[in-house]
Amino acid sequence: MSELALQAYAQAAKEAYANSRSLHDEGGKASEWLAVSRRRIAALIGGSEDGLYFTGSGSEANVLAIQSLLNGAEEGKNEIIMGATEHASIRTYLDSLKSRGYVIKTVLPGKHGIITEKETAEYITDRTALITIQHANSETGLVHDIAGISRLAAEKKILFHSDCVQTFGKLPLEAESWGISALTVSSHKVHGPKGLGAAYLSPNMFWKPCIPGTSHENGFRPGTVDVPGIVSFAAAAAETVESMDREQEKMRQYREHFSRFLIKSQVGRLIEAPQPHQQLPGIMGCLLHNREGQYAMLACSQNGIAIATGSACHSGMAKPPETLLSLGIPEEEAHSFIRISTGRNTTLSHMEQVETILHRHCGAALERMTPE
């Protein structure tokens, strides 16, 4: 969490502690703080405050947004199109819908791992109810063509949801100008508190709540709203978006530095989009040449550096990330995957430490294999 977010949380926890639905003055104060935060975040994603609903996480936002849209979808439409690289929260939920008669179609990425309207259009029929394609992947940082897919969905009168958890605060989000039905974001990705997310459903969309009779968040989600957390979320989001351009430029410099290291050392290769606008620079998905990703992760961890071998939601799983397999990377090679994520507090010195560790622990095997 950023220092500003921590300060905002502490202040709101002291001054806006009441239930925002309560009718007494303290409840009214909490409701005002909540309304201001809702307006702030809605503006940051290019939406209207009438369409923003707070949740307990980005994953919960994904599930509630998708199901609420499906509840209001045209009767008789039972096909859902999803991207092959979707977050586990979407893949597992959509899989559960099969038992309720839904048909799930999976769009494989096109050239260079990008999903565009071209790949998506092939799966559309007159029974397609909803399309869900993430804005950017959490393991590779590849950015999909959400604006183009949204136009396609609008032309075909199909609902469209996008998981924008990875791109909020890193790329501009334009919910209404894109014509998107729904998008979802998460607090901790913008240096706010964990355990908070938000779903934006365009006020132009018809939807029905997952739990009828719910009073909080206009019926979108039950439970007392975490006003201090949301105030903190809004403060962190505003701070992150304000510094977005300069932070992304810093991430690009780190990425270029790491790319040069990989080429020179032959330790591994980056998974990378052909165009800068198709790549989040702060997510560096790398395939090592001579070591499994778990080995590199442990070596870094022992030196006080946290990297991943895939999405944190998959930690402990032996199978490599589905994202890599959908890109056509063989399973054996996919086990060599690591993900390095840079952020606001990352320095060039941190990157150099990572490079030193990888060269020491993952370049040795290469040196032994080189003929004398």
Score class of each variant (00 low, 15 high):
Arg252Gln: 12
Gly229Val: 01
Leu270Ser: 15
Leu262Met: 13
Phe233Met: 09
Val241Leu: 03
Glu176Ser: 03
Ala147Lys: 15
Gly213Thr: 09
Asn204Ser: 08
Ala237Arg: 05
Leu201Lys: 10
Glu217Gly: 09
Phe206Asn: 05
Ile211Met: 10
Lys170Arg: 13
Lys156Asn: 13
Ser202Gly: 04
Glu242Asp: 13
Lys194Gly: 11
Phe160Tyr: 15
Ala199Gln: 02
Gly213Arg: 06
Phe168Asn: 14
Glu272Gln: 12
Ala234Thr: 06
Ala238Thr: 05
Gly195Tyr: 01
Lys250Thr: 07
Cys164Asp: 15
Met244Thr: 07
Lys189Phe: 10
Lys157Glu: 15
Gly192Asn: 02
Met205Pro: 00
Ser150Leu: 10
Ser150Ala: 15
Lys264His: 13
Phe261Asn: 12
Arg260Ala: 14
Leu196Ile: 10
Asn204Met: 06
Glu242Met: 07
Thr240Glu: 11
Arg246Cys: 00
Ala182Asp: 08
Asp245His: 03
Ala237Leu: 03
Lys170Ser: 08
Phe261Asp: 10
Leu270His: 13
Ile271Lys: 04
Phe168Glu: 15
Arg260Met: 08
Ser150Lys: 01
Leu201Gly: 05
His216Pro: 01
Ile149Pro: 09
Gly169Ser: 08
Ser186Arg: 00
Arg221Trp: 04
Ala237Ile: 06
Met251His: 13
Leu262His: 08
Asp245Phe: 00
His188Ala: 10
Leu173Ile: 14
Lys170Met: 05
Val231Asn: 09
Ile271Tyr: 03
Glu272Arg: 08
Ser177Ile: 01
Glu256Gly: 14
Tyr254Trp: 13
Ser177Pro: 00
Ile180Asn: 01
Gln253Leu: 12
Asp245Gln: 04
Trp178Lys: 07
Thr214Arg: 07
Gln166Thr: 14
Lys208Cys: 03
Asp163His: 03
Ile146Ser: 02
Gly197Tyr: 01
Lys170Ala: 11
Leu270Phe: 07
Gly169His: 09
Met205Asp: 08
Val165Thr: 15
Ser186His: 00
Lys156Gln: 15
Pro228Tyr: 09
Pro212Ser: 09
His216Leu: 06
Ser259Met: 06
Gln253His: 11
Lys194Trp: 00
Met244Ala: 02
Leu173Asp: 01
Val185Glu: 06
Ile230Leu: 08
Glu272Pro: 04
Asp226Cys: 05
Glu272Trp: 00
Trp207Val: 03
Leu183Gly: 06
Trp178Arg: 06
Asp226Lys: 05
Trp178Ile: 10
Glu249Gly: 03
Leu159Lys: 12
Lys157His: 15
His257Cys: 14
Gly223Ile: 10
Ser265Asn: 10
His216Ser: 15
Ile211Cys: 12
Leu201Cys: 03
Cys210Val: 15
Ala147Gly: 03
Thr184Leu: 05
Glu256Pro: 01
Pro203Ala: 06
Thr167Asn: 11
Arg246Trp: 02
Val165Pro: 14
Ser162His: 13
His161Glu: 15
Ala153Asn: 10
Ile230Trp: 06
